[in-house]
Design a protein around this nucleic acid. Sequence first.
RNA 1: GGGCGAUUGGCUCAGUGGUAGAGCGCCUCGUUCACACCGAGGAGGUCACUGGUUCGAACCCAGUAUCGCCCA
Length: 894
Amino acid sequence: MSLEPNTATTPAATPTSPAVAGSGLVAERVPDKVSLDGLEERWGAVWREQGTYAFDRTATREQVFSIDTPPPTVSGSLHVGHVFSYTHTDLLARYQRMRGREVFYPMGWDDNGLPTERRVQNYFGVRCDPTLPYEPGFVPPHDGTDGKNVKPADQVPVSRRNFVELCERLTVDDERQFEALWRHLGLSVDWSNTYQTIDANARAVAQTAFLRNLARGEAYQAEAPGLWDVTFQTAVAQAELEAREYPGFFHRVAFHRPDGSPLHIETTRPELIPAVVALIAHPDDERYQHLFGTTVTSPVFDIEIPVLAHPAAEPDKGAGIAMCCTFGDLTDVQWWRELQLPTRSVVTRDGRLQRETPEWITSERGRAAYAELAGRTTTGARNALVEQLRASGDLDGEPAPTLRMTNFYEKGDKPLEIVTSRQWYIRNGGREEGAGVGLREALLGRGRELAFHPEFMRVRYENWVNGLNGDWLISRQRFFGVAIPLWYPVLEDGTVDHDHPIVPDEASLPVDPSSETPAGYTAEQRGVPGGFVGEADVMDTWATSSLTPQVAGGWLRDPDLFARVFPMDVRPQGQDIIRTWLFSTVVRSHLEHGSLPWKHAAISGWILDPDRKKMSKSKGNVVTPMGLLVEHGSDAVRYWAASARLGTDAAFEVGQMKIGRRLAIKVLNASKFVLSITEGAAASPADVTAPLDRAMLAALADVVDVATEAFESYDHTRALEATETFFWTFCDDYLELVKDRAYGGERWAAEATASARAALGLALDTLLRLLAPTLPFATEEVWSWWREGSVHRASWPVAAPLREAADGVGPAGLPAAGRALAALRKVKSEAKVSMRVGIVRAELGVPAAELPLVEAAAPDVRAAGRVADLTLVADETATDAVVVRAAELEQPPA
RNA sequence: GGGCGAUUGGCUCAGUGGUAGAGCGCCUCGUUCACACCGAGGAGGUCACUGGUUCGAACCCAGUAUCGCCCA
């Protein structure tokens, strides 16, 4: 048989089309015993060979549905949360494909940045030392450490180039495993369209976008105090902050007024006393009014500082007067900036106090005291200084334990320090100056333009944009990332001229300024007076992943493709990265293209463990995604994911997967049954004449409308629920009711049998299409028994031909007949006899309004209930139920 | 402290103005004839609480409580 998935669509608008092409009777293609086992491998291979999900790039923008797939971080492991949210995207992709859209569904790998570095350190037992030379053929001390970390002291230092090679080697492995998982799950990704956030194209895109930001004044560098992680030795952006409780002690410390009287402040960071530049209280604070404008001297170091007023001081916190140091926290930075205080930094980038005694400490005892602190960690310095304060009598009482909220880098475990450094920024509306003027409002406008699903997620975007307090810091002092594509001239005196960066041609991108030479220079001029130096920093990962629509869509390398897919239709992602990935992508697109990067944002919720907590890593590792898929089957796991709506947290529920598995098996069995009766013969709507068959198709038409409308509004759960509910009614009631008639035989007129068979065929065809996005494996299996091509390239059903076949009959007949059948079943159930036991005589009381409906289906009800003599009477007391007025079973109850 | 979301049967969740729903679990029964990875029947809830609007509130309004997340 010939499979041509891309062309062999079977339009639902003409369900009369010959059902079976090619050779072989349907009966021979339906297996005797159906099973879900092995469907993932079988159909995965067929889809791969047939290119079922290949993107046709000749499609126009209107025909295309483009998805900005989240590139998973390959150095982390995938967990059930990924399976959950990626399934949501696939449901949408499959629906849109069946709707006739050409789906652009790439897959990216986020292998850029710190997570990969850390994994490489642990996996190979190495660490990067950029001062070392490249060592060709380097063999790492370990090759996989089974999850055990190699202690930093035991890590072998390697050059940056060796380190990057190991990063690339490891990520290739990871990416293979991820792809295998996604294929097993049944994601309808176009696997010929993948990218890495570190590949040459991504680097070129990120560098080009950066240089254009620079040219337009949207990127700039600044020497400024900023948050700094002393462990990773890198600057950290606002979006990467995490406030955590951190234990400390309040120290009550005396400063001294000119007359020698003490003025007490309370601080958790006494080690910053050498960096103090002012004492600050609230302008309305009565207690300190008389001191504003005067000076005091610091204990131990004898530095003279002013007492100033600023509204950011909190009168009810501690003594109500705070020590402003450069820099203890972000409030200090605000005071320093707004009150134009001097800079007296003592904490260095490695988290220790600077080794030289600062020149602003002039007293002899002050210089002696500092010498004891020099080079110590902040903690060590704190302990030493507390002893000094105690000795000088300036510590009042004992330090009192406290918990304070402290900023951490989200991946770090030491509190962030604030150090002054030269960094690169991109405007994001956080500062209203230069190219940033009006930007915040413009980005809020983009947020209003974007269709969030669910809608309430929009406020998270708005809250974040409104709360920005600075531009986007993109430079990182790391190794494995996209280089900032700049060099700087080295002046004749040997200083580096950062104000006049040397910019490469776009055509030469990507470049590595640490190994490549700018135009007009020779390699020998690197680092010498009159020569140049390369920018050592790399861009933060988000500075690249904020460009995924451009990277995947072929922005620079393939403008024709880009025009067909951008702006994209949808960005699927998690709620946790609205402030980072979603927002930064909007920023880049707004600045570069003057548009949104996509029309819709589909936000998935969390997976919660049974304690209603976010699924923890340890638990996630117990149940690996592949283990889940193998245990329950991919369709079953997809069903669980599909049962949760966008934006809603969902429980990790094995029970829900079992229900999905049951549904998938039911699809196989019911389909097998229908095909065994109909022989897969052409289902002509004109053959549908029986009222019950028409009612069933009318009900199914309603389901098609509901499911279509639901998918259009990004509500895959409602689509599934409506379809699933109908499917069970179809199996439990309709199939049972028409079974006998569909088999045929002399008791039934030929037209009556033909009607049932035609209706069964139409219904099965429609149901398989409706279920295909959720259960791609089971539906494809059934499709292969009687159809050519892939159900996933078949068209989404439409209601009109079903309604036409219903010929004006409404859907109410199906539930009415179902209730009559249920009444007969109840008689047998209560008599505790088999459903196969016949009923000699039965009289059913039916609500008057339903009586004509049930009468029209009476032969089916009689057959399904095995009733010899069935009487139906209108019963006013039966308002919405069928009541059994009399019944006589064939054999007495046991 | 501010914001967002949630609170419905034992569990997981639908239900946005008109007599409380589903699935799972539970109980009873059945089953070689599509399906034991099964079928039929049944029990089970004063919809977190307090007010208010309304002829009528799970649903709208105000407040309270608890839980989760985000931002200070």
